[in-house]
Every structure is written in C-alpha cells, then in structure tokens.
Design a protein around this nucleic acid. Structure first.
Lengths: 121, 121
DNA sequence: TTAACGTACAACCAAATGGTTGTAGATGAG
DNA sequence: CTCATCTACAACCATTTGGTTGTACGTTAA
C-alpha cells in the first residue's frame, strides 16, 4: 500500500496535467488500451507535435508511461497515478468530515477531545 | 442527487485551481472554518492581492464561496465541489477496472496470437 | 469627521502554456 | 539500399498565469 506523502510539485504536475480536456481524453483512451502517439494524434484538431507535448505533460505527471514497439511509442495510462490524485481529494474531504464531526460534538455540547488539527501554512 | 455531466471547461477550472500548492493550502484551511481573505493572506509569502487572485481562481472553479461579514469577506470551501473533482477520477478508474475485467475474460477464453502482455505495473 | 482596515481592481511584468513549423534520427517496408 | 513512417526536439509566437504596485471604495473605530 502506497501511503507516501506526495510533494507539492508532484501534486502540481498531477492536477495541471488533468486540467486540459485533450489530455483527459488521451488518458481515457489509453486506459482502454495502449495507443501510439501518432494514432492518438489522428483524432485531435491539432498537430502531431502538439499531441506529443500533451503526452509529455502526462508522462511528467506520471499519469502515462510509454513503451517502444518498433518505431512506435505506445502510451498507456497508469491507474495508480489517478488513484494518487484521488487520494489528495480524499484527504481534503476527510478534513471536511472531521470538521462536521467537531460541529456535531459542539452542538451536542460535548467537550472537544484533543485538537490535533495540523496547522496549515 | 446531482450527477450532472460536467462541462470540459468546468473540469478544466476545477483541476487548474487544484494545481497550485497555495490554493490547495487555502482550500484545506477553509474546510476547517471560514477565514477572511486578509487573514488568509497573512500566512503566505506574497502580497494580499496575490492571495486575492488565488481565492478568485478557487471561486471561479466553484471550490470556495465568499460571504460578507462587515468589511470582511469570509472564504469557505465547498466540499461538494471536491467531490465533483473526485468523481471525474472515479470514472477514469472505473474504465480501467472495466478493461481489466475484459482482459481477464479474454485470457480465460481465447489467448491472442499477438503478444500483448496485459501485465500492470 | 477622520483614520485605519478589508476589499476590489487596474496596469504592468516575467515566466509558463499551448499551439505552430521545420529539421533530424530511428525503424520497418519494398 | 531507398523511402515512407514514427518520433524527438528546437525555435518561434500569442495568450495565460502568477506575481507586483498603486488607487479607489465601503465599513468600522476613535
């Protein structure tokens, strides 16, 4: 089980890579099966080089891996990387649930246990 | 329950907003409780105006809402928006699981002649 | 009223982003 | 071998981003 802390930079790269419709489309297509870069490029209204750059962004974010097959480069999305991104959001939601719990306790007039809330910033 | 399709632009804004460490920090702090913009700005090594811009990015993404209290503007994280972002990743993972299932079926019946080893990792 | 505070917003700037074209190196087909 | 294909990468350009400072405006405190 991977419980590593992700560095700010990796999370930056992760979400930045996800913040583009073309890249998300590439991710979806390469979850279903590996595709070469030129195959991918056929279906987008932009140059091959542009698609190549998008794949590079996904690769630096760890969201896809490439593997040579002959002269082709097969792109495949890494489901674990997507899980990593989700984990960041899970933690945010967990904090939120924690806050709701404290609210509930307050409303029930229970004393707060021990506020180990990690400081931010 | 709202399970609307999210437009490409909203997902773009969502992930773009999440792709910055300062903004993620703001999100975490405002999940725990509302904070004014100037209060937020105290703890970052940048100008008030810069923090104000980060809050605006989060607001356009729907990740936070603002509410006036006197001369202050209280920022609060919207947990549902985070859930929306997570949903996008969930769908990607679901596709991946679907693919693994199909692979398993394929391997159980008819080995492909071509050597497309379906090993993950 | 006056002063201080919290916010909003415009103007500006350097750096990053997302696209282009062009060139060059491997690889496979004929 | 020669040629077409697939990829890599540099150079360039327009726009966006993330920061700055400065100004203006509403609200609260003295």
């Amino acid at each position: 089980m991977v419980v590593d802390e992700l560095s700010d930079e990796s999370v930056d790269r992760l979400f930045h890579a996800l913040a583009d419709a073309t890249r998300r489309s590439i991710l979806r297509r390469c979850v279903r099966g590996e595709l070469s870069v030129s195959r991918l490029a056929e279906d987008y209204p932009m140059s091959f080089a542009a698609v190549q750059k998008h794949v590079a962004v996904l690769e630096r974010a760890g969201l896809v891996t490439k593997q040579r097959r002959g002269r082709e480069q097969l792109v495949r999305t890494d489901a674990e990387a997507i899980a990593r991104a989700r984990q960041v959001l899970d933690e945010l939601e967990a904090t939120w649930r924690g806050r709701v719990d404290r609210m509930a306790r307050l409303l029930a007039q229970d004393p707060e246990p021990d506020d180990k809330t990690p400081k931010e910033g």
